[in-house]
Amino acid sequence: MNELAVPLNHLLFLSGLLFSIGMLGVMIRRNIIFILMSIEVMLNACALAFVGAGAHWGQPDGQVMYVMILSIAAAEVAVGLGLVLQIQRRFKTLDMDQANRMRG
């Protein structure tokens, strides 16, 4: 169709930046809620890259993938929040460094 208003490189750069921020969050945050949120950020960064690529080549597949990622993210959050509740009940904390019983 038409040329994209924003160049693909910019989109990919933004996507990469978001992914890195999310990954950094996963790595350095101790609170499990924040870790889950950071994972969401990473997923959305991927989704953004798909949408951008789909728009660049004028293919609908990118948006199909976006919908799929969205549903997977929803399922993941459902399971993840369930686990968070269990962790809160067992350990009375959300700090993942405290919940380290499975060490070698």
């Binding site: 790595m27 993942m96 019983r101 060490r103």
Partner: peptide, 18 residues
Amino acid sequence: ALSKMQTGRMRGYIVSMV
């Protein structure tokens, strides 16, 4: 030696994965 790596800290696992 290897079982020392199983610290039980999730963030450690993630960092090493990354």
